[in-house]
Design a protein around this nucleic acid. Sequence first.
DNA 1: GACAACGATTTAGGATCCCAAACTGGTTCG
DNA 2: CGAACCAGTTTGGGATCCTAAATCGTTGTC
Lengths: 279, 279
Amino acid sequence: MLVFNLIFVLRLDFGIQLIANASMESIDTELAARIRKDIILGAYKEGERVSEAQLCEIYEVSRTPVRLALRLLEREGVIRRGEGRGYRVQSPTVEDILQAVEVRGHLESLAARLMAQRRGRADHLPKMALAIERIDAAIGELASLGGLDESVVRRAQAANKVFHTTILSACANDYVGYTCEQISHLPMLAVGSMVFDRTVGDTPDRFQRGLFRLRLGNAQHQVIFEAIEKGDPVRAEGMMREHSHTMVEYIQTFEKRDESLTVADLVAYSATESFSPNS
Amino acid sequence: MLVFNLIFVLRLDFGIQLIANASMESIDTELAARIRKDIILGAYKEGERVSEAQLCEIYEVSRTPVRLALRLLEREGVIRRGEGRGYRVQSPTVEDILQAVEVRGHLESLAARLMAQRRGRADHLPKMALAIERIDAAIGELASLGGLDESVVRRAQAANKVFHTTILSACANDYVGYTCEQISHLPMLAVGSMVFDRTVGDTPDRFQRGLFRLRLGNAQHQVIFEAIEKGDPVRAEGMMREHSHTMVEYIQTFEKRDESLTVADLVAYSATESFSPNS
DNA sequence: GACAACGATTTAGGATCCCAAACTGGTTCG
DNA sequence: CGAACCAGTTTGGGATCCTAAATCGTTGTC
């Protein structure tokens, strides 16, 4: 049973690729990921601060990788290099998350449309069908278990990510996937992330509602799949938009319910894992 | 009269801001812009090459700013840091341009929808109305002149850019504009760019067709404006999509006509100007 | 007492140095 | 004759040093 403090976000991490990145990529990229993580988790306050020397001490590296990392983070928007001599931390807010999710969803809907228009789309359909099947199987397992099981949820996450990334990569427009990655630095913004309410595990009623959300999501997957299969761009795009909007609404609902919702709460779970640097 | 080699692209440059950037920003950012420009213009071939030391000599700087610039360019995707020890140049193709324009257009349509949904949108409407008026005036001038005048075209470009950037900034979702900027490193991808056929100035007939394109584009602006004013998100989005798609179709038409179309041709005009580094 | 100017310290940018890893060449052994 | 290994050179990554600029504090003068 998984019960977390406010909302917990589970992500698929593509373990192999991650390890490869973590060891292959030079320190600066990894360092950027670490600093980003700390900023998101609130280790640095919103306002103005952080100097290169300061970061050198904290992360025990020289100034060179720090500066390389800062350029990257500046480009990402999590820090700003302003007027004077200082770097200002620009930690993302819940509103930022919502906006980014909205943009990502919109891009995914473009991907769905493009894929539905594409001739070679049939090649990628089996992978999507398999993903839908796996999510269904996972939902079935959860339903019979009557509670959340981490490994089952992880499998569902993995399949969910496969479904979404397949569309992004099969849409024949590299910039869609690329652009999506650009705004997916925040952990819960990774393509194919699923967000759960902390209360999902609390009572049977809430658990059933969580299951319903999963079933609804996968039904949307099925519709998107069929629309792409049939070559119906309008329906594929519309359904994907609706599908993406589900997450926005869910967070908004939760935000209204709990006014103290912070970004750190949103990443409460995924923070304990290693982050996917970029890729 | 402006007559260029294949296609010429005119861009508004926000002169003041540009100058501020060029002098304010540190060398690495500017260096990244220079290298990017050279890559786009084909100074470096597509395949695998370039070393840090080599770039140091060419641009007469130390290795530190070169490496900072390379990280930026890597993030942008114009170079790739691969397997072995080398940086590979990944110069964009015409297909890349088309894909990027498609993505940008889709994001702009999102911005139009969001702005149409927004309550405070009225504040920004006058600026858009003025832009439409100015474009109309410029078209009128061009029509009465019977040919292309650089300053008039520039004014039209400026107004066009104002129209588009106003929507992007007024949509109340910072990530839309931010994401747009990310893919706007290529000069002809700057928001609000207008693309002209080199043949526009050749014959009166072609000139009239060019005028027709401008009039059509501004009519679309008017429709978008009214849709946003009335708060019709669906229409605003749809019209913006159509508007954005115009450029894609135009380049595609031209690509079919002239198979040797290269990216360097696309930037033939704007390359002579200073590039907008980022911002 | 207040304001301005000058100096000291902080800080970011650029350059150089060092090192580690990988590619290239040649040579040697099977 | 081919393959593998070893050495040398190339190249990228990290650290340190230097410099320029900006901010803050102090002091002097009005």
